[in-house]
Amino acid sequence: MELGIAFLLKKTIAWLLMPMPLGMIVLVTAIWLLHIGNVRRATYFILGSIIWFAIVTHASISSLLLLPLESQYKKIEQVPSNVKYILLLGGDKERRAWEAIRLYKMIEGVKIVTSGYSRHDKLSDAYKASKLLVEAGVRAEDIVMQEDVKDTREEAAKMKERVGTGPFLLVTSAYHMPRSMILFQQEGLYPIAAPGDFNDRGEDSIWSLFQARHLQKTERAFHEYIGLLWIYLRGVIYHDI
């Protein structure tokens, strides 16, 4: 699938604003300052990068960043009877899929829509998610794939072709749900939030820093906040035109 320049530019800018690239930019700047002999300023940048990585890899910081996102929607316990589709958004399929499977077993005759394009290999996220679902006991005839969508906005537009204004269950990670709901509602859809994959906040020791799993959670939060900012800026731009 060919990716548009605007899409690639958006992804590149978003990547540069993530915790790891930001920290590496500071560190590379320090190396350059050392190279030109500005040791004093280089020391400040090195200390700054160490402090930055300590912050973004700390358990308490990552949990604090995710909490406002994950607390907006609760896990579904009672499912409306008129739902015919469960949309499982692409990404983190190993973590999100279990909520879709749980809901699938609660609703007679429902179909699961898997979504997502192929990023780095020949198999799309939608296809890989469908294989996981089948292995977990979902009937293959109850799975529909959307393999030609690159992001949440395109997933919403594609889903509108399928359900129109009818209700459906939207399954994604709890931290991703607020942005997803906004994008789907902007497309004139009526999703029912069904968050899964809530993050574990069990570890909050002051020494729980410089750990990759906490950096991953911080990156998830950054990604969502950047996405929400992008939605806001798009709204401001289009409102002013």
Rank of each mutant, 00 (worst) to 15 (best):
R96W: 02
Q78C: 08
L64S: 06
R213D: 13
L123C: 07
A129D: 09
G37W: 11
P80F: 02
V144S: 01
G164V: 13
S63H: 15
I86F: 02
W15N: 09
E147M: 03
F7K: 05
T114L: 12
V113Y: 10
G202I: 08
A54W: 00
L89I: 02
R234D: 15
W207S: 14
A59L: 05
S71E: 11
S63A: 11
R40W: 13
L69V: 00
M18Q: 08
G90M: 03
K217I: 11
V26M: 15
V163R: 05
E161Y: 08
L228Q: 04
T218W: 03
G4T: 12
H214I: 03
L8D: 11
P80M: 10
Y73Q: 06
V236H: 04
W32L: 12
M145Q: 15
L133E: 04
M18W: 04
P195M: 09
Y225A: 01
T29L: 14
I51M: 06
I182N: 13
G91P: 03
A212Y: 11
A100Q: 02
S208I: 01
I182T: 09
P80T: 08
Q211W: 06
Q186I: 01
K122N: 14
L8V: 08
P178S: 02
L132Q: 10
E70S: 12
F53G: 06
Y85R: 08
P178F: 09
K217R: 05
K84Q: 14
A212M: 11
L215P: 03
R41I: 15
Y232M: 15
V163N: 11
L3C: 07
T114E: 01
Y104C: 09
F168C: 00
E154C: 13
G166A: 14
Y232F: 15
I86E: 00
T165L: 10
A212D: 01
L34I: 00
W32T: 02
A194N: 13
I25A: 14
I13M: 05
A126T: 01
E155P: 01
Y190Q: 15
H214T: 00
